[in-house]
Design a protein around this nucleic acid. Structure first.
Lengths: 335, 335
DNA sequence: ATGAAAGCGCTAACAG
DNA sequence: CTGTTAGCGCTTTCAT
């Protein structure tokens, strides 16, 4: 089967009986062609199955209309965001170029690739680079960092308002009657420090200074697992409620506790963070939703603005929203 | 800040003191340049920060070196595959263009987009199109369908060997001592009919014809939920083991059973299908692994071959592999 | 409203 | 080994 070459604008012009330039105008819905010509060209286009070549368009316009997204695949929250980006890409007429950064294939390499693809802006989800690396990269291509605090105001940042979000979860737990509330922190993860601080602050405000308990954690399932083991070492001193750094940690903790016969939420209530869609159907976890759609829109539009040189860096903080499911109940009777 | 235009090949040639063509040769590691020139050019390149423009390369070579992937975002198994594709894309020097098909934005539209992007082949995960739609599309662009049986041999197909996979799971359950084994089927999902048939076949072979029980299901968490409810309507007649259409259904069933106090695996054992990475860390489900890495490689290489006109359609069937975790145990004592 | 010509950044084909 | 020329498919002048 000989490869049947796709028709070009010249073919289209020939078929429609006009110049390529005119055909181009019609295909782009640009002004400057009579209604009659438009009809002729459109008819010809569908007859020969013509479709414009985006690469050539972009090349000629000296624009790539591309925005790169770097993410880690093992984080389901990222997968959700990527899907949301895709819709925004369509809406804004940009193309999303994906890059996956893993431990062995870091952000730097991913960014290199994006530069070769002539992306006009780069979104990085949960970056693990140092601030100076990011600054260097930002000189090459506008950067939008999602979910990580960056002190340099030069760089765009989008993230939830950790303090507000944790505060919300804490108020909820307190209102249900909990007082022995522990926090499993995120290790060095982006946002971890802020969340831990907000937890401590909320405990203080509630006059529960003596019950403050921060357990070392991380962002993965296994970290929750480990934290649970640590908690179980002192069964007399079980918290009645736990705020975990994110959903994965929450579920890791939950499963390990369940495995040891600790009822959720009868004995211990658990709150997560992210409302990861792919997990929410599987585990009825009470969690702070990151409102992925809003975050995706804000992030993407920010990237477009930077790509088009229309705005300086900003750093919006998105409010979280508490989603109550079944992992939180009233506290057990304390002895 | 004035946009600092990126250096072109001409700039590079000027800087290196040679012709653009020669610089091009060096940058592509193509034969035809002296070692001395190569050094000169490379030095110049890093000095001015030159990087080749892939769009222009592809345009000139009349190739897009792109392969499109259409997937549904709410299926975590797809997310895993996409990540694996990405690595294969890098390995083969192709670019992966993503499209997300959802109920409101169907495969046809996604495919349209891919054509505009000049993809040279299109991989569709879990297609919901009719066979004739696929055939029509295949005339425009080589198609690789993953996970769906297509009777027309014209179209490439990659999928697990459902019969083999289910057989493996059944043998395992039988060897552990189960006999009242039920199957929650996949509704109209790709592969559902084959898996159900294999289940029935295995039951027959084991002489358990009278215990055959196929429960209507689907591929989502909710379907498992519903199936569990149906099972619970007749508590006297609980199966001792269940083979679910996929992991989501298995977990849906499991959670609903657990919620009603049915122990897993003490009272009912459950086997899933897919070994979805993002779920496997959360739930210790015994499941038939689809070996995502192999599947991704086979699929991608198939797409590349078709894109390069090097082979006709084929339809490899990949073997599944049983992953034993904690959701299967010996059967409870039957009355 | 329409067309001719130039060129986006690169590489294939040919000269030297 | 090196340089020159032409053109991938499209859009943008600038004429007409």
């Amino acid at each position: 089967m000989p490869k049947p070459k796709r028709p070009t604008l010249v073919d289209l012009a020939k078929e429609a009986g006009c110049s390529p330039a005119l055909a181009s105008i019609v295909m782009r819905d640009a002004p400057g062609a009579s209604e009659q010509t438009r009809r002729k060209v459109r008819a010809a286009a569908s007859r020969i199955g013509y479709r414009p070549d985006r690469r050539a368009q972009n090349l000629r316009q000296s624009r790539s209309k591309r925005i790169g997204v770097l993410y880690t695949v093992d984080n389901p929250f990222h997968a959700d965001l990527v899907a949301a980006f895709w819709r925004n890409a369509r809406r804004t007429g940009y193309q999303m170029i994906l890059g996956i950064s893993s431990p062995d294939e870091g952000e730097t390499e991913g960014a290199e690739l994006m530069l070769g693809e002539r992306c006009e802006a780069l979104i990085i989800l949960g970056s693990v680079s140092t601030e100076s690396e990011l600054l260097a990269l930002d000189r090459e291509i506008p950067l939008i960092i999602v979910g990580k605090e960056v002190s340099d105001r030069q760089i765009d940042t989008v993230r939830v308002d950790d303090a507000q979000a944790v505060g919300q979860a804490m108020r909820y737990l307190l209102s249900v009657g909990h007082s022995r509330i522990a926090h499993i922190d995120g290790g060095g993860s982006p946002g971890a420090a802020e969340r831990a601080a907000a937890y401590v602050e909320a405990m203080r405000e509630a006059g529960l200074e003596d019950s403050i308990r921060v357990i070392a954690g991380g962002w993965r399932y296994q970290d929750g697992h480990d934290a649970a083991k640590q908690i179980l070492e002192d069964p007399q001193n079980l918290p009645t409620a736990i705020i975990a750094f994110d959903d994965l940690v929450a579920i890791g903790t939950m499963n390990e506790l369940l495995r040891h016969g600790v009822g959720i939420p009868e004995e211990v209530s658990i709150v997560g963070f992210d409302d990861t869609a792919q997990l929410s159907s599987v585990v009825p976890l009470t969690t702070v939703s990151q409102d992925i759609l809003t975050m995706a829109r804000v992030t993407w539009d920010g990237a477009v603005e930077r790509a088009e040189n229309r705005a300086g860096p900003r750093e919006p903080k998105l409010p979280g929203r508490l989603v109550t499911r079944l992992s939180v109940g009233p506290p057990r009777k304390l002895p």
